[in-house]
């Protein structure tokens, strides 16, 4: 086969293009992160999930240990059912507490796991029974106002 003068330039072009893609995947994206590793799924039910989103991080002591896989509403109990996918390198005891917290003042919401002392670990399909719902700003404010109002009526009487 005859060698053409374009071969080298085109080969270089394709190679740099693929290198750029690798750069984007490794350095800009998070291909090397948790996304690729398999994990086990546990279920957590919350009264209110606030602004929690699918793919939000699951953290323990600030370290990302998994992601929120799906969020659905249980039509029987009207609780939000969140499936958390946790990296299999991390084990949590049965009595772990899951709570929804906010990173920073305006940051995104995440699920925080606080490990308990049980010697039995959570496995695939298990359910975290102790949960703490997200704080809803409006509820906090209305609670605060309600308390204030009841306080002031208390003093006038």
């Amino acid at each position: 086969m005859k060698k053409s003068k374009f071969d080298l330039a085109v080969g270089l072009f394709v190679a740099t293009g693929i290198l750029a893609l690798v750069f984007l995947a490794m350095k800009v994206g998070n291909l090397t992160g948790l996304e690729t590793s398999e994990g086990y799924r546990v279920e957590a039910r919350f009264d209110n999930i606030g602004g929690l989103k699918v793919r939000a991080p699951v953290k323990s002591a600030g370290v990302v240990v998994g992601r929120v896989d799906s969020i659905t509403l249980d039509s029987q109990t009207y609780e939000a059912k969140a499936i958390l996918r946790i990296d299999q390198n991390y084990k949590f005891s049965k009595d772990t507490i899951a709570s929804i917290l906010t990173s920073g003042l305006l940051g995104e919401q995440y699920v925080s796991l606080e490990a308990g002392g049980d010697s039995v670990y959570l496995g695939q399909g298990d359910r975290i029974s102790k949960t703490q719902p997200a704080m809803i700003m409006e509820k906090l404010i209305s609670q605060f106002l309600f308390n204030k109002a009841s306080e002031s009526t208390g003093t006038t009487k």
Partner: peptide
Amino acid sequence: VSMPLLACLFSTAGV
């Protein structure tokens, strides 16, 4: 073929 490669290079150069 060249469009995705060029787009990757564009994004990389932009970053």
